[in-house]
Design a protein around this nucleic acid. Structure first.
Lengths: 146, 146, 146, 146
DNA sequence: TTTT
DNA sequence: TTTT
């Protein structure tokens, strides 16, 4: 019985979080996260590899993501793996695997990319100073709301 | 930069591991792992949910999986998330997400199901006594061999 | 700033949990957990090593530990490291490091040892069937109550 | 059997690593790491709490620590808990709990504090750019060398 | 003081 | 397709 399904990621946001507000006041944020890895191939060359993860955050965590997370930013994410099934346009069953976040923590990196201006930066820095920088989901509140 | 991509699972094998031997003597084991979860819905009812993970183990770990792991067995797995791209029969790009195991540890549960007979059980128990029950992949050896 | 302090253990209880009830109705359970490890020494001999951890569980988790956990049982524990300072009998400052549990999950192993009788076993099994077998602490409720 | 003893930390170095070179060419680095946490007390006030961890890194990881890690720097560390016993000056048995690192990854933060000068900083930045920024210990090589 |  |  007793199962464990835990994911720990440290990586950079591929884009600003996108937040949807569902009926009933529930919010969901989604964004991609890149984790960079490297290994030596048979010739001893260093090969870079980027893995892209689909991150989903619910309710309070979604609002925090919307407020504080930006494209390029480095974050620590703890969550669980969830594979959803859906029908594509040709009515074929497809699967998508996502990480449902339970905890998000902003790391030392500064946001980057074309999104936020320097002005925004300051804004983010100031807000972040006034608030906790680790956000945690209440257990069992990251379930689908239906 | 410095990325972390780590998965920790405790669950039960959905089937016996399937092992392929690639050219160059490299072996790959694959099996599914169920992690069971439960939560309370809005009516307060207990809802069970099973997440199925595709596990891949390379080289030494593959051989260990082949030797010691059976359908139904409870294991601890540590690894990383990897999403592969492939073309389906209609030449459409599809994605499959797998967990590449770095460490597999057999937990207290006894194997079950139609596979192993009582005789096999004893066999497994005996072998297990003579060997470590946690198997670890050498770092960077679980890369695709091509 | 944003810190992470996370421990993941799979091991066996060295004794039955001991539960204290503090003023204000707060309960604290404590027990030791053995994690067994092995490595090869320079001569290639297999060396066993047992690490003993001091586990502390608060409130709801303490009550679950009291009810369901027994000496010898195999459990998964997630928590954080906490080092406390105290004065010993000679008024010297000493330190003790504990793991404060956030989640405890019972694994496949059956309890053992002189403690529980077969009767107790059945009792535990039955109760366990009626309840979730993973117990989680609400975030931030595992703080010292003073 | 099969035990798991895993620690994951994200925090800041309390001082530059101190490296000792043992007979046989084995090196050991040690430093402290602060993980910052916060919680709300009964009055709803935000309380900061810093946990200090004793980190030990062996061999290759020790050399990496010596080269690249500085006081104040933010790092991700994965390792295991190890409690050592020793006799203090009054011949009393005492215990010290350490984290033996298996993997250290430098995060986005810039070093800080009175230690390194701006000059050193550049040095560190440049070197870091030319090398992998995640360092991993070969399994079982972080054992005590005696 | 646990477990295999 | 697992497990309790």
């Amino acid at each position: 019985m007793a199962g464990i399904n835990k994911v720990i990621l440290v990586g950079n946001l591929g884009k600003d979080p996108e937040v949807r507000h569902l009926e009933g006041g529930v919010s969901v944020a989604s964004f991609t996260l890149a984790t960079n890895d490297h290994y030596k191939d048979k010739q001893g060359n260093r090969v870079e590899r980027t893995e892209w993860h689909n991150i989903t955050a619910w309710r309070g965590l979604a609002e925090m993501a919307e407020k504080y997370l930006k494209k390029g930013q480095q974050v620590y994410i703890e969550g669980k793996i969830r594979t959803r099934q859906y029908q594509d346009k040709d009515n074929q069953t497809r699967y998508i695997t996502e990480i449902v976040a339970d905890e998000i923590s902003m790391l030392g990196g500064r946001p980057q990319g074309d999104g936020p201006t320097a002005q925004d930066q300051v804004q983010v820095q100031m807000s972040a100073e006034e608030t906790p920088q680790t956000f945690r989901q209440e257990p069992e509140l990251n379930q689908l709301p239906f």
